[in-house]
Simulated scan of single mutants.
Amino acid sequence: MMAVKVPMPSALDVEVAKRLGLRPDQVTRDHRDRLLCQLQDRLAQVPVACDREQITRAPARGPVLLFQPRETVITEAGNVRTRDVGQFAGMMVQDAFHKAELQAARRKQPDRRAISATCGWCICFASTARL
């Protein structure tokens, strides 16, 4: 009797099968392509909090941070006042420094850059952003 070696499904096949409700050995290339297109379309969407009419879909944009646009004005008494402006959140592309700031905030270990980033020109709430 000869033993037949059955190839193990890849990690991608296991993930695709889980999302589509299939067994890993039933996953075809068409299933993988369809799921990757769905994920790419989801990444291309503009967050709900932003003005979707002014910002176009862009699959290559990558992760983004949402912020509340703010305005700083000097009052007649000479005081500085900061207030929210606009009805939509702003959006900026997340880079490695933003990622480090968010990780430091999660660990509750403030570093100088994370403290200086909250100077008032934006309040980032990326952890609550949903794409």
Results as ranks from 00 to 15, higher is better:
residue 2 M to P: 13
residue 3 A to L: 11
residue 4 V to M: 09
residue 5 K to N: 09
residue 6 V to L: 12
residue 9 P to A: 02
residue 10 S to P: 01
residue 10 S to D: 09
residue 10 S to Y: 03
residue 11 A to W: 04
residue 11 A to M: 08
residue 12 L to D: 10
residue 13 D to E: 15
residue 13 D to I: 01
residue 14 V to D: 10
residue 14 V to K: 14
residue 14 V to E: 15
residue 14 V to S: 10
residue 17 A to G: 14
residue 19 R to I: 00
residue 19 R to L: 11
residue 21 G to D: 08
residue 22 L to W: 08
residue 22 L to N: 07
residue 23 R to N: 11
residue 24 P to I: 01
residue 25 D to K: 03
residue 25 D to N: 10
residue 25 D to C: 02
residue 25 D to M: 06
residue 27 V to T: 02
residue 28 T to H: 06
residue 28 T to E: 11
residue 30 D to Q: 13
residue 30 D to T: 12
residue 30 D to I: 05
residue 31 H to Y: 03
residue 31 H to G: 00
residue 31 H to T: 01
residue 35 L to G: 00
residue 36 L to E: 02
residue 36 L to V: 00
residue 37 C to Q: 10
residue 39 L to T: 00
residue 40 Q to G: 03
residue 41 D to Y: 09
residue 44 A to S: 13
residue 44 A to L: 02
residue 45 Q to G: 00
residue 45 Q to V: 07
residue 46 V to P: 04
residue 46 V to C: 09
residue 46 V to Y: 07
residue 47 P to I: 07
residue 47 P to M: 11
residue 48 V to L: 07
residue 48 V to M: 04
residue 49 A to P: 04
residue 50 C to F: 06
residue 50 C to G: 00
residue 51 D to E: 09
residue 51 D to Q: 02
residue 56 T to R: 14
residue 58 A to E: 15
residue 61 R to V: 01
residue 61 R to T: 02
residue 64 V to L: 05
residue 66 L to P: 00
residue 67 F to V: 03
residue 67 F to S: 06
residue 69 P to M: 03
residue 71 E to M: 13
residue 71 E to V: 06
residue 72 T to V: 14
residue 72 T to N: 10
residue 73 V to S: 05
residue 73 V to L: 08
residue 75 T to K: 12
residue 76 E to I: 00
residue 78 G to L: 03
residue 79 N to A: 12
residue 79 N to G: 08
residue 80 V to Y: 06
residue 80 V to E: 10
residue 81 R to E: 10
residue 82 T to P: 01
residue 83 R to K: 06
residue 84 D to A: 05
residue 84 D to L: 01
residue 87 Q to G: 05
residue 87 Q to I: 11
residue 87 Q to C: 02
residue 87 Q to Y: 05
residue 90 G to Q: 08
residue 95 D to Q: 09
residue 95 D to F: 05
residue 95 D to E: 09
residue 96 A to L: 13
residue 96 A to H: 12
residue 96 A to N: 09
residue 96 A to Y: 09
residue 97 F to E: 11
residue 98 H to L: 08
residue 100 A to L: 11
residue 101 E to Y: 06
residue 102 L to P: 04
residue 103 Q to R: 13
residue 103 Q to Y: 11
residue 104 A to M: 10
residue 105 A to N: 03
residue 105 A to R: 14
residue 106 R to G: 12
residue 107 R to F: 07
residue 108 K to H: 13
residue 109 Q to R: 10
residue 109 Q to S: 04
residue 110 P to E: 12
residue 110 P to G: 06
residue 111 D to F: 13
residue 111 D to I: 15
residue 112 R to T: 12
residue 114 A to C: 07
residue 114 A to V: 09
residue 115 I to C: 06
residue 121 W to V: 13
residue 121 W to E: 14
residue 124 C to A: 09
residue 126 A to W: 01
residue 127 S to K: 01
residue 129 A to W: 02
residue 129 A to I: 03
residue 130 R to C: 13
residue 131 L to Q: 13
residue 131 L to E: 10
